[in-house]
Nucleic acid binder design. Structure first.
Lengths: 357, 357
DNA sequence: GAGCGGGGTCGAATCGATTCGACTAGACTA
DNA sequence: TAGTCTAGTCGAATCGATTCGACCCCGCTC
């Protein structure tokens, strides 16, 4: 009797064995009929399928299937922060898009994971049925994650941040790109330049850019971009933001621009969102951009609510995601893909200009 | 011998049984030692844990665990469209945020699913190890999805769109809200009003708003909002967009505003993104907003790049997501949560004004 | 000292499907 | 007609952990 929509669930859901029994075949044959891999006569197949629909059988249980097959069809994507903040960052979304695009042929889904501490109640990298993992973001905790995955034997790909060892990495030329941007500023005539960086440590400590903070850090992206700036302006100073957001940029820039005396003529922001915050701070303080202050961003997204055409270093976010996805597909196929390094390009908008004499 | 970082994986990964053997206890005891549920002497526990770390055991296999326990710790979120487009819609992101927030105490992760056709190669609602599912969006395919889930015995919650029967639904007052907005337009003096709707059918057919299209449709949201507009402007006409995006709004509005003779003095857009597109179309055509054209949106997000303060119907997106997540948690706990209906609020911005005499 | 209770451990069944090797009939060849 | 082959089917082992009931032994009580 088919289950009625309004009745409670049957005491026990029906299994492949039930279907097989009803069709008068063995469980193995029924399995073959469903998976299609193996010789089964059309008549038998039909009988099995009929029995299944009569019983309201919803197909093989994915849990059992994945235990037997050793594959779950799920690729984890680790976002360093909470899901909410990751989605505020357009760069992450673009990468996620690239990833889900690239793994589609694998028939796998994307499981969102966050880097909460171990043993937390949220599902984590330690206990989720994953076939592979993509680590997104310049996470200081990368080392731990990689170690966990290695123990579990799960292939991993990292986007940004040095995972070390033999983990495939998808990155960009953070240092060179920033240097190019800094050189552009110098070519405009700027000599008094400050920087607003991404956080250096896991705690996301914000504050003035000190040697302490800088060296305690493990965040590759922030360090590399800073190095690029130092290549051109060796003694550059500035502030460390607590993350990539307009709000953080605003806060950092308020400090940076507060004192009219020591005010820089240009600010290098390590992300477009930070740059947008810097611009907003300038507006607050009545400082005109780019006449009185040049602002350089990084990423190449269009921050929400910013009408200026930001001068920035455009990185191929979607391509990065796609490359990561493709690497996952290859690893699952037993290959050993190479790391990839993309290059960024300077886009000159209207937020940079020569400094006022 | 512990696995060296550089060696290939051991032929077979080690299992709980291996650990138990090494610790000199039975598999059952080892399991107890790991899960902590059951009486195990401290000495034994210690021995097991030691053996595990010596062997490089990474903890129980989640696949086996979920088979036995019948829970996978994964909640699916079905986005009707591709992942990429879903993330372009700020409303969806906000709901997703609310969901992931609410299910956190469950210790479950969020698996992104898209409503691709059956049997597609992508992981789907039919074969993913899910404990529960949240259906997002006014999907015409909702019926099929609900049926699949019912067969599989997976609890479901729908956000927007009438899932029918006994499925919990989280919604808003689409009709009443739109009516309120329309009444506001009428109170300003508008009588010639057009509408740009969301798609009515699964194929996302775009074009003029005809009775055919309208009635063939199964998309609850579009229909309800249209009804609300009809409550005030019974003979309202307009165009059906192919989705919620600035691009679609732009395209629809070009048609709508092309002919200066029959041009409406106000446009009701069924989403803020569509509204942003309408405004952009007006700019293209040299029509001033709000002096020559009033535009009303729906959602309460700030569309990217739109500097106007959109007059719109603000819906509580995050709260909707959170309510859905909470419903999931309750269902998994064996309760039967109630459906929830939120209300939207009219926000008067600067895109609406009385029509020119 | 016999009886009793309970902490600690173990065996074995179980979750549900997949898959490999074996087996059976019927078709086809020599 | 005996022998070979193949398509179709079945049994049984397997994936790895969890869990229920049984069991044992030690300490306590009367």
């Amino acid at each position: 009797m088919p289950t009625d929509a309004t009745t409670a669930e049957p005491a026990t859901r029906c299994t492949l064995a039930d279907v097989a029994a009803r069709a008068g075949v063995s469980a193995s044959t029924a399995s073959l009929a469903f998976s299609g891999s193996g010789p089964v006569s059309d008549a038998t197949k039909e009988r099995v399928l009929t029995a299944a629909s009569e019983l309201g059988y919803a197909g093989p249980d994915p849990r059992a299937r994945s235990l037997r097959r050793g594959r779950s069809g799920i690729v984890g994507v680790v976002l360093e922060e909470r899901v909410r903040s990751a989605f505020l960052d357009p760069v992450k979304i673009q990468m996620l898009d690239g990833i889900s695009d690239a793994i589609a042929p694998l028939g796998a889904g994307v499981l969102l994971l966050t880097e909460t501490g171990r043993g937390a109640d949220a599902v984590s990298i330690e206990d989720a049925p994953l076939d592979a993992v993509v680590l997104i973001g310049c996470s200081p905790r990368l080392g731990e994650s990689v170690e966990v995955l290695r123990r579990r034997g799960i292939p991993a790909v990292a986007i940004e941040g040095d995972p070390g060892d033999d983990v495939v990495e998808i990155g960009i030329d953070n240092r060179e790109a920033t240097r190019a941007g800094a050189e552009y500023l110098r070519s405009l005539g700027h000599t008094s330049v400050a920087i607003v960086t991404l956080p250096f440590d896991a705690a996301r400590t914000r504050g003035p850019l000190t040697a302490d903070l800088e060296h305690a850090g493990t965040a590759d992206t922030a360090s590399e971009r800073l190095r690029g700036a130092r290549d051109v302006f060796p003694s550059i100073g500035g502030r460390v933001a607590g993350g990539s957001s307009i709000e953080e940029g605003l806060e950092a820039a308020r400090e940076l621009l507060r004192d009219p005396a020591g005010r820089p003529t240009a600010v290098i922001a390590q992300s477009d969102l930070l740059a947008a915050g810097v611009i907003r701070a300038a507006e607050e303080l009545g400082i005109r951009v780019p006449e009185e202050l040049s602002v350089l961003g990084f990423d190449g997204i269009r921050p929400d609510g910013l009408q200026a055409d930001l001068t920035t270093l455009v990185q191929p976010s979607v391509a990065k995601g796609r490359a990561a996805g493709e690497a996952v597909v290859r690893m699952l196929a037993g290959e050993r893909p190479e790391s990839v390094r993309f290059t960024s390009e300077l886009h000159v908008g209207d937020t940079t200009a020569p400094p006022r004499a």
